[in-house]
Amino acid sequence: MGIIFSILSFLATIVVKSIMNRIVSKRQLAAEVFMIEVEAPLIARERQAGQFIILQVDESFGERIPLTIADADSERGTITLVFQTVGRTTHLLAEKSVGDSVPAVLGPLGQPTKIEHFGDVVCVGGGIGVAPLYPIVQALKGAGNRVTVIMGARSKELLILEEEMRAIADEVIVVTDDGSHGRKALVTEPLKELCEQEPRPNLAVVIGPPIMMKFCAETTRPFDVSTVVSLNTIMIDGTGMCGGCRVTVGGETKFTCIDGPEFDGHAVDFDNLMQRLRAYKPREDADHEKCHQELETGRGGSE
């Protein structure tokens, strides 16, 4: 009796799990950047701009990585995730197709972005940071702000969501490092120009690589423009239990997962953040290399 019971409940578990977190659409946005929509009705219903999820591609041995929610559709019960293939988990995620499921998705986590009527807001997105910026621009517009978006990438091929941004922002300034699209500049240049104009922006929201966020914060600091940054740190549980996501903000220790992910850019110790992000660099580089080799041999074999 007990055995039958446990087999039944085991089967039930499999059925429930297999239809969870199904990928319903997949699009490649740039060379190493993918956008997927995942069925996660509970998260889609609860999430607010600025929040993130933690996912795993394998529940036995997979790592847990945080990804900001780029968009959600509560009616269809889906969330949109944008990721760049930088490590083992993101590579394996990119290998998945529509219909496959993501074994574990936890969220929504973190504090939502503070959305209110600020007036003039400049939103700066670098590289893949444009994706998590999108729902914030949307929400800020919804609250009646005038939003200028500065989006940048190394080159044209790596620029994502430009059309989508143009559809919602009041103004979009595109910059690339090599000048292959838009202005040949770093995002800090137009940001500085906006700060120099009167009236100054009432708020800057910056999401991108830590080094970019650091320099954007340095750009706005002399103009006293409050600057919000969204951090993506190493995490395990995402609920405050491990403290792996510690950041130094204004000399105090904060947990990105429960106190963040957004902080005052003028108070964040970016150097410490960047050092902490490199904690496992040798191992990650080795894994990344191995991953590429495996994927290539895998492809070679099937041809």
């Binding site: 239990m241 491990c242 403290g243 792996g244 950041v247 130094t248 110790d269 410490n272 050092q275 490199r278």
Partner: peptide, 11 residues
Amino acid sequence: ENLVGVFSANE
């Protein structure tokens, strides 16, 4: 305490 190589036992 936020140097690289400092961990909570939990982590």
